[in-house]
Design a protein around this nucleic acid. Structure first.
Length: 124
DNA sequence: CGATTGACGTACG
DNA sequence: TCGTACGCCAATC
């Protein structure tokens, strides 16, 4: 089902469907909100492949379309992937710029800023 | 085609 | 409660 592929169709021919979906969901994360790899994985139907979500982010920076990977953290609200940005501080700065407080790589009030794709995207 | 990896998550000690 | 081990699926080497 392509219920979540309205704005895609870019230069993602190189990416597999799984990657595409990950990028799509990630782009749909509103500013000031964050989600977890597991939540995205669960939304894609492969809750056990949460690691794949993070792996997909490795190609996120080479995508033509911007992918707000900084809005994706682990289920602890910890900025585990900050080291994959240009600088470890970029991820936190981006989140703080969006109104999210981050202390010691930990998002404050994580659950309050949590964005659940399964709910927001009204999946069934 | 087989082995390894990977920005996670859960279980177990 | 904290630290370590294992599993999961898909992609890459």
């Amino acid at each position: 089902m392509d219920s979540i592929s309205p704005l895609l169709r870019r230069g993602l021919g190189v990416a597999s469907s799984f990657y595409e979906k990950v990028y799509e969901v990630t782009r749909l994360i509103p500013a000031g909100k964050v989600t977890s790899y597991g939540a995205i994985a669960a939304f894609l139907g492969t809750a056990q492949s949460s690691r794949m979500v993070g792996w997909a982010m490795n190609n996120a920076h080479v995508q033509d379309t911007y992918v707000p990977a900084h809005r994706v953290v682990n289920r602890n609200g910890l900025l585990t992937g900050k080291h994959h940005f240009g600088s470890p501080a970029i991820m936190q700065e981006l989140l703080e710029a969006e109104g999210i407080q981050v202390t010691d790589d930990q998002i404050i009030d994580f659950e309050k800023h949590f964005w659940n794709p399964m709910i927001e995207l009204a999946m069934e």
